[in-house]
């Protein structure tokens, strides 16, 4: 599996270039043209990214999430969900790096093959940073009315988290 994924990118690059050459395209000039678009696009993104990172970092550093956790504690104990993974689940839709930092801590403290470690690893792998992606993608084309996108995205995240808890319990316990 690892070999396939390391071979894949070089292979894709090779296919794109040789197919372009076969179709008699000035691949070098076209590449430069596209690369220029890439630079323009990155700088068009910059304001939305800075705005979102600003808000996300303040929110995460305030540790408000641990405050919410206090309320959820009893409820989660009944469901026998390890409390350590909850901050990760709450942070996951907002920031991938923050969630990864918590995962790192969980794996160090509890070990990667413990129930808690397996559950946290599964959660990290099952969804993406919904709020960040929405801000980035909608921001890139100046869309402000996002309608029901966030609601559906968060529902999907919640489904992924619940599914992780059930599956890990079923597969590993």
């Amino acid at each position: 599996m690892n070999l396939i994924s390391t071979l894949l990118i070089p292979l894709i690059v090779l296919i794109i270039l040789s197919y372009g050459l076969k179709k008699k395209i000035n691949i070098y000039d076209v590449f430069l043209d596209g690369a220029k678009d890439g630079i323009v696009m990155t700088f068009k993104l910059a304001p939305a990214v800075v705005a979102m990172v600003f808000a996300i970092n303040i929110f995460i550093r305030s540790e408000f999430i641990y405050f919410i956790l206090g309320f959820l504690k009893d409820f989660l104990n009944i469901l026998s969900v390890p409390l350590e993974v909850v901050p990760m689940a709450l942070v996951r839709p907002i920031s991938g790096t923050a969630a990864l930092a918590i995962l790192n801590e969980i794996l160090t403290v509890y070990g990667p093959d413990s129930y808690t470690g397996l559950l946290a690893s599964t959660m990290q792998g099952c969804t993406d940073t919904t709020i960040y992606v929405l801000a980035l993608y909608f921001g890139s084309i100046n869309i402000t009315k996002t309608r029901y996108a966030l609601g559906v995205g968060l529902c999907a995240d919640l489904a992924g988290i619940i599914a992780s808890i059930l599956i890990v319990r079923f597969l590993f316990l």
Partner: peptide, 9 residues
């Protein structure tokens, strides 16, 4: 850059 080639071809 690469995708522009893929697009043009």
């Amino acid at each position: 850059g690469l995708m522009k080639i893929a697009e043009k071809s």
